[in-house]
Design a protein around this nucleic acid. Sequence first.
DNA 1: CCTTGACACATAGTGACGCTAGGTATAGCG
DNA 2: CGCTATACCTAGCGTCACTATGTGTCAAGG
Lengths: 104, 104
Amino acid sequence: MKAEHLKGHLDSLILGTLGAGPAHGYAVIEELKRRSAGAFDLAEGTVYPVLHRLEAEGLLASAWTTASGRKRRVYRLTRRGRTALDGSRREWQAFAHAVEAVLA
Amino acid sequence: MKAEHLKGHLDSLILGTLGAGPAHGYAVIEELKRRSAGAFDLAEGTVYPVLHRLEAEGLLASAWTTASGRKRRVYRLTRRGRTALDGSRREWQAFAHAVEAVLA
DNA sequence: CCTTGACACATAGTGACGCTAGGTATAGCG
DNA sequence: CGCTATACCTAGCGTCACTATGTGTCAAGG
């Protein structure tokens, strides 16, 4: 999977991962890898800044928790984040259809 | 269509457009717009450098022609370009499936 | 015990790459 | 004779994912 392919889609993917329920950053990375069957194996340095940005934009909210001695920052979709996810899905469909029309 | 979505896919789209047969740069832009029903309306400054790069990489070959007084540079896929297009199609499928697995 | 690896967070700097903005030139139309 | 469409080109910019690096906890193995 070429890294540049993600460009412009990373936000959608992270919103999509959190669509199933709240998760902390590291778990988002694992879940992305799992759902994509290994295709999206992102570095922490790729994902954490996106989480921060999405929170700053009001699409995510976070809260600190502690599990077995480790501090975790758990993110969840805000109402606006949920709306953004719906929009992302529609945008993806439009993009995918357009690409397929060209490559077909 | 957000511009950044193209990142990493632009080469594939241009190869795909030329997959149907040779065309000059301006026609590639028009054809991309047509096939994508307006979704990919790319500036010349976006497309021409890509054509040059793909030619430098040996995926395209070009020849100057003249049509009704205007000089045109007509590009065609090389054998390696055809192979690259096949690879691009497979990569797109993998990428699209992975995204859909996450967004679903 | 102490090293190694998994877990978990964070950020500064880099680099790739599409876009903006500007340039040249011909043809056809009102 | 301007205006629009056609047709090419390039330098510089801005965005955004990635690299590299740092901090700290916990469990497992030697």
